[in-house]
Amino acid sequence: MATNAFRRLDTGRLSTLAVVGAFALLVAFFALAAPSFLTAGNLYNLLVNNVVLLAVVALGMTLVIASGGIDLSVGVSVDMASMVFIMLLAAGYAAPLAVLAGLGAALLVGSLNAALITRLRISPFLATLGVLFIGQSVQRLSTGGGQPIYLVRAEFAPTFDAIARSSLLGVPTPVIVLVLCLAAVYLVLHRTVFGRQVAAIGAKPGVAWYSGIRVPFQLAKVYVGAAFLCGIAGILLSSTVKSYVPMSGNAFLLDAIGATFIGTTISRERRPGVLGTLLGVALLAVVKNGLLLVGWNFYWQQVGIGVLVFLVLAVSFGLHRRD
């Protein structure tokens, strides 16, 4: 019987089908509604400009959410990496040094989060919110109140192009970076002992502690790792726009949280995972890009994103609730 077969379908799988189906429908719709959607140029633009940065930040968020926490300061990590990178370049330092220093700045933010959460036992929400506020002040103070730093002079172009516009065997460098990050986080989260322990901490910290897992130490690694990924995004971001715009990283925060949690809907137990997050990022990016191509103005795009994400969630959670 049809209804029986329907009922027998695992609700987790059903909810996965719903999200993937919604994604496919959206792609199909935009492909029909906007002829330019499926062109190589647009897909390239979609991937390099919309997906890569958000995906790298969202991977960091995935790690954190898998451990049962949240990181509101991802934007600060992105910004600090971007700021240090651009400032050092402007001061005439060598590009590799600037990149390393930028990543170092992000690691510093992550370490601060880790210390607050594991040493001072502040809840992740408040700890990272505090760091977000502090990060904003630091940026204002370093830039005279939030003045962007543009590096448009020709001498900087090679550095930026090497990072953001080069390609290897026809694959753009940012995409290669994304694939590497994806592979790394996938392996760490889903294949290693560390990843398993993080999932246990996320499921029940007490059980993890009673199983001999060094909970604070592993959590610290999670927050530092997330900040490192954000640092990578920061370097990519400033190389793409050839500038540092204070507090621009915050734009990723809510999208990254959204993408990660949308991603959890494809898991039977609603656990965050790399593939799910990637799907979440793709969904958000396609909707944004598609609505733009269909000709909605920027304002309506935001409404559209909200409504579409809401609908996907409604279907996914609604199906889950049938039990």
Binding site: L254, F261, Y299, Q301, Q302, V303, G306, V307, V309, F310
Partner: peptide, 9 residues
């Protein structure tokens, strides 16, 4: 979060 996007839009 989704509703926030709708309202802001």
């Amino acid at each position: 979060l989704a509703v926030m996007n709708v309202a802001a839009g």
